[in-house]
C-alpha cells in the first residue's frame, strides 16, 4: 500500500492581516466587531468612479515582516488585479501582487534534527493583497448576507517552498511564523478575528523522488490543528487514490485523474484558471520601496 511508501510534500500559504488602523486602499477603520457594513466608503464598496490609494503603513509593515523572514525586498513591486465574481468581492477583482511581489526568498528555522542539523522551511515570496468581505449564509433563511467591513483590509501572503514533509513540521512552521510576526508587531495574528488564514498545497511522493505529484489545494483553514488534521486526511486520501488508480491500471488502463479541488474542506472561490484573469493594475503606480526605506526598517529591527 502506498501509505507506507509515500510521504507528504507540503507548501503553505499564510494570509495575515496587517496591524493598520485603516484599510489597504481607503481610510476606513479595520476595527473588528463593528456592526455590518459600517466600516465602508465609496472605495471599498466599489461605487462607480471611486479609486484606491495605497496605505503606506501597510507597505511598511509588509516590508518589516519580509525582513524578519530574511526575504529580499524587491525595489519595484507591482499590484495586479485578480478578476472573479463573488458577492463579497465588491470590485469584481482582488488587488494583489503576482509577477512582482513585495519580497522574495527567505526562510524560517523550525527546529533541529536529532543530529543537530537545522530544519529550515524556505519562503518563496511575500506579497501584499486586500481581503474580501464576508458572506453570511446561515443568518437569514434563503438569503446570503454580505458584510463588507473586512473588504479592503490589508493582508500579506507568505508562501513557503514545498519543504514540509509532515503535519508536525507544518504545525511547527506555522507556530514559529506566528511568533515571528507577533514579535515584529506587524499583526495581531488572531485566529478568532480572522486575521490569520492558511491554505495548504499538498501532494505525495515516495521519498527520494524529485518530480512533484498532482497537488490539492486546501483553503481557508483558520486554526493550526485544522491544518494538521487536513494534511493527514489528505495524505490518506491521495494514497488511497493512487492505490485505486494502480489497481484500475492493472485491470483496464483507464486513469482517473484526481480532482484538484478538495471537496470536503472547501470550494474554490475563483474558479478554474481560465476564468481567473490577472492584469497589472494601472490605477496604482508601481510601488517602489526604496532601498533607503527598507534599510531603515532593517536598522530599526536590528537595534
Amino acid at each position: 500500500m502506498s501509505r507506507e511508501r509515500y510521504e507528504m510534500v507540503v507548501g503553505l500559504e499564510m494570509h495575515v492581516q496587517l496591524k493598520t488602523r485603516t484599510k489597504a486602499f481607503c481610510g476606513c477603520s479595520t476595527d473588528f466587531g463593528a456592526p455590518p457594513n459600517v466600516n465602508t466608503c465609496p472605495t471599498c464598496l466599489a461605487l462607480p468612479g471611486a479609486l484606491p490609494v495605497l496605505n503606506e503603513r501597510a507597505v511598511e509593515l509588509g516590508t518589516r515582516a519580509a525582513l524578519g523572514l530574511g526575504c529580499t525586498i524587491n525595489p519595484t513591486s507591482v499590484f495586479a488585479r485578480k478578476n472573479y465574481f463573488y458577492p463579497d468581492l465588491p470590485k469584481g477583482y482582488q488587488i494583489s501582487q503576482f509577477d512582482q511581489p513585495l519580497a522574495s526568498g527567505g526562510s524560517v528555522l523550525i527546529g533541529r534534527t536529532e543530529k543537530g542539523a537545522d530544519i529550515k522551511i524556505g519562503i518563496t515570496r511575500l506579497h501584499m493583497e486586500e481581503d474580501a468581505g464576508k458572506s453570511i449564509h446561515d443568518r437569514y433563511p434563503g438569503a446570503t448576507a454580505i458584510d463588507l467591513n473586512r473588504a479592503g483590509v490589508p493582508l500579506i501572503e507568505i508562501v513557503s517552498e514545498p519543504d514540509i514533509r509532515s503535519s508536525a513540521d507544518a504545525g511547527a512552521y506555522l507556530r514559529t511564523l506566528k511568533q515571528i510576526l507577533q514579535y515584529l508587531d506587524v499583526s495581531d495574528v488572531s485566529m478568532e478575528e480572522g486575521s490569520l488564514r492558511v491554505d495548504a498545497n499538498i501532494s505525495v511522493w515516495p521519498p527520494g523522488q524529485t518530480k512533484l505529484g498532482t497537488k490539492t489545494e486546501v483553503k481557508y483553514m483558520n486554526s493550526f490543528s485544522a491544518v494538521e488534521r487536513a494534511l493527514e486526511a489528505e495524505l490518506e486520501r491521495q494514497c488511497a487514490l493512487i492505490d485505486s488508480v494502480e489497481q484500475k491500471r492493472e485491470a483496464t488502463t483507464t486513469v482517473i485523474f484526481p480532482s484538484p479541488i478538495f471537496g470536503r474542506c472547501c470550494w474554490n472561490r475563483s474558479g478554474s484558471t481560465t476564468h481567473t484573469r490577472i492584469f497589472p493594475s494601472s490605477r496604482m503606480r508601481e510601488k517602489r520601496v526604496s532601498l533607503r526605506s527598507s534599510e531603515s526598517h532593517r536598522a530599526k529591527w536590528n537595534s
Binding site: A46, L47, P48, P90, K91, G92, F279, S282
Partner: peptide, 16 residues
C-alpha cells in the same frame, strides 16, 4: 476592452 472587462465587473447587481 481588457481594462473595461475588469472595471465593469463591479456592476453585478449586488450593491447598487
Amino acid at each position: 476592452p481588457a481594462e473595461a472587462s475588469s472595471n465593469l465587473a463591479r456592476f453585478d447587481g449586488v450593491r447598487y
